[in-house]
Design a binder for these strands. Sequence first.
RNA 1: GGCGACGUGGCCAAGUGGUAAGGCAAGGGUCUGCAAAACCCUGAUCACGGGUUCAAAUCCCGUCGUCGCCUCCA
Length: 463
Amino acid sequence: MKLRLFDTYTRSLREFEPLRKDYVGMYACGPTVYDYAHIGNLRTYLFEDFLRRTLEFNGYTVKHVVNITDVGHLTSDADTGEDKMEKGARKAGKSAWEIAEIFTQAFKEDIRRLNIKEPTIWCRATDHIQEQIEFIKCIERKGFTYITSDGVYFDTSKLPDYGYLARLDKEGLQAGARVEIGEKRSPTDFALWKFSPKDRKRQMEWDSPWGVGFPGWHIECSAMSVHYLGEFFDIHCGGEDHINVHHTNEIAQTQACYGTRLANFWLHGHFLQLEAEKMSKSAGEFLRLQTLIDHGYDPLAYRFFCMSAHYRAKLNFTWESLDAAAYSLDRLRNLVYEWGEPGAPNQEWVERFRNEVNDDLNMPRAVALTWELTKSDLPAAEKKATILIFDQVLGLGLAEWRPAEEQIPQEVMELVEKRQQARLARNWAEADALRAKASEMGYEIEDTPQGPRVKRKKVQVRP
RNA sequence: GGCGACGUGGCCAAGUGGUAAGGCAAGGGUCUGCAAAACCCUGAUCACGGGUUCAAAUCCCGUCGUCGCCUCCA
């Protein structure tokens, strides 16, 4: 089956054809680095990783660009409120530049721990101010801007099909508007360049043809994606929350300047739900990947958990379901490890797998097929080689995984030895008491034909 | 208030017209001194009420419930 993807722009499943032979340009909206990423954010980057790996699985070379938003993202999409970076800096007592660096590194570490492939290009908004200014100048030349006392704005009324991506009902928006529009002519108009406040100096500000200030949030993605991928490229993706405002405005900017809708396919990952509610940063406390690790979970258990649902369905996070993912991943790893050295892969199974992932990245079915493979009658070497091919998309690092070689404390080893002696003497009561004691100390003793095996118990301390 | 999505076994979830994938948990079994691990087996008619159809979880209408965007969000 050829790759089919759900394109939000047309609201339909479309067969994927690259614009250039064997090459895919893909832009994924990255983090605003004013705080840590929570596991809901990370779900979206996992979806994008499955997308990229599936494209590569189909033989395409992917140029994957991810931005780092380190300026211009206000605490309100209504073009009011503070810049998130400056606010984060003030809260932390550090400079905005330091904040950006700290959270950029933290984000990259999360990505690495989840086995998400590094983008081909990371690009920071503050490294591309000039490109953004040029882009705004282009929009201005085409007559889509106006200037107010606080910035340069995009005039959405000049674009007849503004909001097509989101199927925005402009009338409805007018009626339901709950925000002050200030000097904006329409609630959907948005800032391209904001002027620095007159009474104080911002940490991040630049000269521009319109005055000292900083770029609006949406312009960075249009400017950088065009810069690295061209005026019309293959795929643009992000979280579902970006459909209404951010991606709608990116398209508006690009249509004004170049007459394109920026990307051929628009893909959106849906939200992780936490106890039936969206996980949000503003709620204060939120779950980070590090939180999961602190509770004894392997980060890849979270990756595996995210494969249990389709990317276009909400996924409900519970500790119980994370446990399920952790246990089953562990079982899968041991199975695959025990298959030994890989032989030649089975092409029929590889094609079945391709059919699943090519059907709009149906990871749940791809995983189900993986379990089916483990139960099949294929020789171990063939299963092993085949599952390692699957793992090019699954990204679980199955080829490298080894059972942990643990240092068992001397005192536990002594218990094991004493228990063996009791067992030889058929003193079962004594043997069971010793096993219980080891268990209290956090170690499990399992008897195998090769003798006793000692493992540390899983640590799981949940909130 | 406007727009949109969803409601499948204990939990997480596939499936969008032809009599319900998978994982975890649970119960039963094989193995074991007993366990553990492993392996085998077992269970849902798809929120509710109508309708369309030879046939519906899958299409239509209504009701209830939950959630998302419109306000920081991936």
